[in-house]
Design a protein around this nucleic acid. Structure first.
Lengths: 371, 371
DNA sequence: CGAAACGCCGTAAACGTTTACAGAAGCACG
DNA sequence: CGTGCTTCTGTAAACGTTTACGGCGTTTCG
């Protein structure tokens, strides 16, 4: 680990000034002879330019942060998988912040933006508190938020439409003749939990089904707790014929419990997950799931951020990604047999199944905020 | 995005020199009155120290890189999940490099170490070429390699023992009375592919089973191609009674094909995966899988790197993580019913199943290399 | 009361770049 | 040979910190 050569070392060896070395290395017009000498010296010394010094001078780090609760969560992972190549192609490095479910950590991360070790940030907040909004308003580098943020917050924003997503699922179940559709939700003080809970109520209302609070059980967003919640639910009401689970992990827990209880899926109880993660395709029976477009949201966020990093100031943008219902065996009695579909080589492989989308296949961009 | 306040701004406002400001901010002994003034000014201005300038001066970035082929791959993800919190606790940020399966990209990443935007790096090379070894020898910052590296390479090294892992699987299948045990492998010019292929041969030999090359099929490490490979295998040889798959994704593909072909799992064909990812627990039948300790390897690597960053020079270390066989329904006729086991809150939940480990439960540390 | 000792503080240099500016060198031309 | 122009190069300042060093004011003690 010897002290690496710097621009000065090269200058000495080539017998020129550091300014000339810098010019050569940056391809600015220089006499041929000088170029040759500098290149030779750089080559011999194995010179590599120092990113930190460049950043200090240029005020650009070529780094972008991605902050979310948990890399282990497949939905966030799907975003990451899309964000990474987009940033890489644009010459940015990716700094990962897995904050855990702790709100204070999210605030910390926003605060650390002030340290300017990144040029911008993509964040998926679990909750959006007053503190979040204050930090966002005062942020010293551009931030793109995945998840809804109030009108007027000065950041670009990528939204899922979980309201429509839930409606797709409930309509689907209703169309299959199910009438006792239960919701297994995560904490209602989280962004997704609240949205899904409200959307469930609305969707029932639209179909003229009664809202029965016995049919709603709340746990967290993980498998074991999902299993517990479903067990409790089954204990309480015997005639449930469909379960809408707030994410795929909960749905897996549901499958475990239903199997143990001897209820057939989908004949006795249909199960729908949300997020359409790899697990949905891997499970058996494979899981019908509402895709909220995690991958698309990730890509959109990355593109919004790059835009802003390159073009600078403009009014905040809002992108909404439409949901899709991916129908698989956990709701349809006759699952398709082995499917052989094209598969992204970089992914872990998921079965798209039958896709029922909203009619707008492209994502919509609305202007918003102040000028 | 106004130009943020610097140490100079504070100095002016507080009426002291920048040196005093720096001292206060770093907690060096200072008169109480000065501390007060500086703190007040910093507070009012919303000062946040500039990480880039600090790095330049201190020659420490407090960043560490993690480079592997694909974040989407559950095995790498498991490592990441362990690495992240360890680094975070030690005050390091994590820079993610997903190189894809391209060797040139891995070399690039190693080269970029010279830019000194990180203090060190953890790398999981897909292949280890001559170019890798040269870069590693010349690396200007400490590197920990996950995956075997030749004796004498001047880097810390964390290894899986896939030889023992494969033997555990083959022994298990043999113990269940299976005699036509096929191998569905990935490319044999990758590190894991080569190791698993060789180990399979050895394990058969130890049990006195013949090596039949018809029983070996090679694809890649993904689900669709795994399905293809298994289909080809079944076409070629009719009497296969066990499949050892080089990873869990391949095994999922195998389950798809077997189900479609009407072969029962495990009654007709037992299936074993490798890596024991979340998918193994999620699939149905749940998948017996050889855990190569991805999580443990990730943690070990992070700890080795931190050690080296703090303590500096010492001879290279080698850590070997023992494999475990996790038995689930895809090999045992009677899968346990719903299991309720403790679950890591940060994870996506996996069923440990019955664990048959090697007798050494702790990982072994051997000295190695030159002094 | 003078000198030594001590505690604080400011000046300036350094980390490795980029870049504005001005000087040097070369050349053509009158 | 002087002038003006072009082309190249070197000097120096700047980015925002940390830190060695020396100076100053106060205290302490002989």
């Amino acid at each position: 680990m010897a002290q690496g050569p710097t621009i000065t070392t090269i200058a000495e060896r080539a017998g020129v000034s550091i300014a000339s070395v810098s010019r050569v290395l940056n391809g600015l017009p220089t006499r041929q002879e000088t170029v040759r000498k500098v290149m030779a010296a750089a080559e011999e010394l194995g010179y590599v330019r120092n990113a930190v010094a460049r950043s200090l001078k240029s005020r650009r780090t070529h780094q972008v942060a991605f902050a979310m609760a948990d890399v282990g969560n497949p939905a966030y992972l799907a975003m990451l998988r899309e964000i990474q190549p987009v940033l890489k192609a644009a010459g940015y490095r990716l700094v990962l912040h897995s904050t855990g479910a702790v709100v204070a950590d999210e605030i910390d991360v926003l605060h650390s933006l002030g340290e300017r070790y990144v040029d911008g940030m993509i964040m998926v907040p679990l909750r959006v508190t007053e503190a979040h909004l204050q930090m966002l308003a005062a942020a010293r580098a551009p931030v793109v938020v995945i998840g809804s943020v109030p009108e007027g917050t000065p950041v670009d924003n990528v939204r899922a439409d979980s309201r429509t997503g839930v409606r797709l699922a409930v309509d689907h179940l209703h169309g299959l003749g199910r009438r006792r559709i239960a919701l297994v939700n995560g904490p209602t003080d989280t962004v997704p939990g609240a949205a899904r809970g409200a959307a469930y109520r609305e969707a029932l209302a639209e179909l003229g089904l009664p809202y029965d609070e016995d049919l709603v059980e709340i746990g967290d967003f993980y498998r074991a707790e999902g299993a517990r919640a479903v067990a409790a639910l089954l204990n309480r009401v015997g005639d449930v014929d469909a379960l809408l689970c707030a994410n795929d992990l909960i749905a897996l827990g549901a499958l475990d419990v239903l199997r143990a209880a001897g209820r057939r899926v989908p004949e006795d109880v249909a199960v729908v997950g949300m997020d359409d993660t790899d697990l949905a395709a891997a499970s058996w029976p494979s899981l019908t799931s509402v895709s909220l477009g995690s991958a698309e949201r990730g890509r959109a966020a990355a593109e919004l951020l790059l835009d802003r990093l390159q073009e600078g100031e403009h009014e905040p943008r809002v992108v909404t990604v439409p949901p899709r219902l991916v129908v698989r065996a956990s709701t349809t009695p006759e699952p398709p047999a082995v499917r052989r579909e094209p598969e992204r080589r970089t992914g872990t492989g998921s079965s798209p199944g039958t896709s029922i989308g909203t009619d707008e296949e492209t994502r919509t961009t609305e202007g918003g905020g102040t000028s």
